[in-house]
Amino acid sequence: MRRGRVGSAALVSPALLWWAGLLVLPVGLVLAYSFFERGVYGGVVYDWTLDNYRRAWDPLYLGVLGFSVRVALESTVVSLLIGFPVALFIATRPARWRTVLLVLVILPFWTSLLIRTYAWIVILNDEGIANRALRELGLVEGSVRLLYNEFAIVVGMVSTYLPLMILPIYAALERLGPELVEAAADLGANAWKRLWTVLVPLTLPGIAAGCIFVFVPSLGNFIIPDLLGGGRRQMVGTLVQSQFLEARDWPFGATLAVSLIAMLLALVLMQAWLGKRSSREEAVTRAV
């Protein structure tokens, strides 16, 4: 390289300064607010306190946290059960087809989450397409409640984040090479055994990355539980929003946000510590 480290520093510093001012400082402020008291009319009173964190242990809020973790876990498991075979299907197609199939899978991910979530309201409501289809098939009479519950939230999460499960698993399968994947997937008898003894262990980093990719954004999601939970079931994201905009309790909202980041950070660090960082970055690079 002709220009030295000074030139490189000049290249990276504008962006890093931007993030220092518009990412580190704002998040730091949220962290600080979580240790302050709430003013009588909203706002923040600059008196140190741990009350917000004590309050977060109230069964009411622990329940919301527990429900968020449960929904994120359910979404992750469902995505894995669908995503692994789908990734296997794509990886065993001829090379010229794989890119097209991958694009088909990823494309919806890049469209508006808000709009697709609204579409699920249209599909899942009592008079929606899903209920009419169930009636036509004679499976139900009248209608089943598909909307404004845990089921609707998980459907919304899976339809949003499933591509993030498929991509890293596909990347891991592709890295094994088509021969190995074919050999493991073929050979008729004992396909299950081969799946568990060859493909799953060898693609474990991809599977782990996919699980993190689905779990992390599901846990803190706001739009999906807000629209599909119908205000009946709160998740951390909707609770943070209501503390900020409705209850006007910024310190407590900040406390919940800090707890959320702490959980996500722990997960991501664990993933990095497991030494799978390269595969994670590769998969994200692919996704964008």
Binding site: V27, F222, Q241, I261
Partner: peptide, 8 residues
């Protein structure tokens, strides 16, 4: 998460 960005 976008909600954390938002409040920050």
């Amino acid at each position: 998460p976008d909600i954390v960005y938002a409040i920050a």
